Simulated assay, not measured.
Amino acid sequence: MAEESNATPIQRNAFDVAMELTMLSLRVTKISNESDIHERFLKYYSIVRTVETVNFTELERYLPEEMKEIIQRYK
């Protein structure tokens, strides 16, 4: 018999998300200049902080149709 898990889901703050996006983009583009990395992180961080303040239904209208279809399946 499987035991129930009371694990707390991982929650990421804006800094964590910006770091992950920066690291992901660096894997793709291979930037090594420190100022470019810093600029990219600041761009992602500002996007994440802005998105945190916007209602999801307002953002949803800007998504590509294929993403909207995926979201509708899980609502």
Rank of each mutant, 00 (worst) to 15 (best):
V54I: 14
I10Q: 09
S35Q: 06
M23Q: 12
E58G: 02
K68M: 07
L59I: 01
S46I: 01
A7N: 15
E4D: 11
E65P: 05
S5W: 01
V17L: 08
N33C: 05
F15E: 14
Y44Q: 03
I37E: 00
T53H: 09
A18K: 02
A14H: 06
L21G: 01
R49S: 04
N33P: 02
L26R: 14
S5Y: 04
V28T: 08
V17T: 13
D16E: 15
F56W: 02
F56G: 02
E39L: 04
P9V: 12
E34S: 07
V17H: 06
M67Y: 10
M1W: 08
F41K: 01
V48H: 00
Y62I: 01
E34I: 02
K30S: 12
N6T: 08
S25N: 03
E34Y: 06
V48C: 03
R49V: 09
M67F: 06
R61W: 06
Y62T: 05
L42P: 03
T22K: 00
P9N: 12
D36Y: 01
S5M: 08
Y44P: 00
I31Q: 12
F56Y: 01
S32I: 10
S32A: 08
L42W: 05
A7F: 04
R12G: 04
P64Y: 09
T8E: 15
L59H: 02
R61C: 08
K30M: 14
T57W: 01
A7P: 03
R27V: 05
I10R: 12
A14E: 10
I10N: 11
E52G: 00
Q11I: 10
K68T: 15
V48K: 03
Y62W: 13
L63P: 10
M67Q: 14
V17I: 13
Y74H: 06
P9M: 09
S32K: 10
Y45N: 07
R61G: 05
E65W: 06
Q72E: 15
D36H: 04
E20R: 07
V48P: 00
T53F: 01
S5Q: 13
Y44W: 00
M1N: 15
I31N: 12
E60A: 11
N33D: 14
T50I: 04
V54A: 01
N13H: 04
R73L: 11
M19D: 10
E4G: 11
L59Q: 00
T22M: 06
I70V: 15
Y74D: 06
E66P: 08
I10A: 09
E3G: 11
E69K: 15
V17G: 03
K75R: 03
R49Q: 08
V28W: 07
K43M: 05
E65K: 12
E52H: 05
M1C: 10
R61K: 15
N13G: 11
Y44R: 03
M67L: 13
K75T: 01
E60L: 07
E58L: 06
T50S: 05
M1S: 14
E60G: 07
R40Q: 05
